[in-house]
Design a protein around this nucleic acid. Structure first.
Lengths: 146, 146
DNA sequence: TGTAATTAAATTGAACTCAATTAAATTATA
DNA sequence: TATAATTTAATTGAGTTCAATTTAATTACA
């Protein structure tokens, strides 16, 4: 009798990756109306989230936190600079490093953004226990991969 | 005493969306070496996965399954057509519908692709119970959003 | 010291994603 | 039946993502 496991696993629903991919995009989509109000994209928003905590950080470290590389971050940071939310300048100690720093205007944006998570949270229909479980499993996958 | 919950929730780690977004991209990245062998992108691959099950489907229905719209699918389907894996033709019954059908060559690719899930699965360091829990929670979020 | 190796960011090019718009076909209804 | 509303794909444009390459700076070490 033939073994169908491999063929079975080629079903969309049988792979973890697909719901992960679809769910990620759908949840990011929930942010849009709220981020539109702030004239921010999701990528710009999470970049600012790091800077609201760190004040100053180089592109490399920022990329490690966001799992993004300079190919993605360079245009995002230039755009945030144009909007007046960050400054970009080379480190005096090591000219290879580009230091990104939040501006006063960028700090102010935090006040306007602070209700976003709660508002988006409403469309994620999980109990806090389920959300915690999901959160932990996602980081387990993420940590297990590096 | 002031309430800091809203500020707290602006931390990257405090939102479910970020690990979802990062995890999705990292897991998709794991597919690359295997899909490179087949000269397929991830989006092309999941499109074929649907067609391996359905044989024929219109763009609308395909988009519902993949959570993608024609803006994304049209170029993907044209590319798969160029590679000889699918055909695209308007429905006789309703000229608005574009019917996508798997070709014999597309069917053959399934044989080559069948080991991909198992090979990628190795880099997801979860027990089968954890994987099932994660899977169910992702679909709960996804289903709760439509 | 001088050269090689490494590191950080920018750039390039291909592909994806999505919102908004357009065009064509179909369906509903006045 | 004629017109209006709806539906389906395609198109457009902005922004993202990533691999690969390039450039400049720093570090390692012969």
């Amino acid at each position: 009798m033939s073994n169908n496991n491999e063929y079975m696993s080629l079903k969309l629903e049988n792979q973890l990756c697909f719901p992960l991919y679809a769910c990620s995009r759908e949840v990011v989509k929930q942010y849009r109306p709220f981020l539109d109000e702030l004239n921010l994209t999701y990528t710009q928003y999470i970049t600012l989230m790091v800077l609201w905590e760190e004040k100053q950080i180089c592109v490399k470290k920022l990329g490690e936190k966001l799992y993004l590389d300079s190919g993605t971050l360079t245009p995002v940071l230039k755009s945030l600079e144009t909007k007046g939310y960050v400054t970009r300048q080379r480190s005096k100690d090591d000219e290879r490093l580009l230091l990104v720093e939040i501006t006063e205007q960028g700090e102010k944006l935090r006040e306007l953004a602070k209700t976003v998570p709660t508002r988006v949270g409403c469309s994620i229909k999980l109990s806090s226990e389920e959300a915690m479980t999901l959160y932990n499993l996602l980081y387990k996958v993420l940590d297990g991969m590096k």
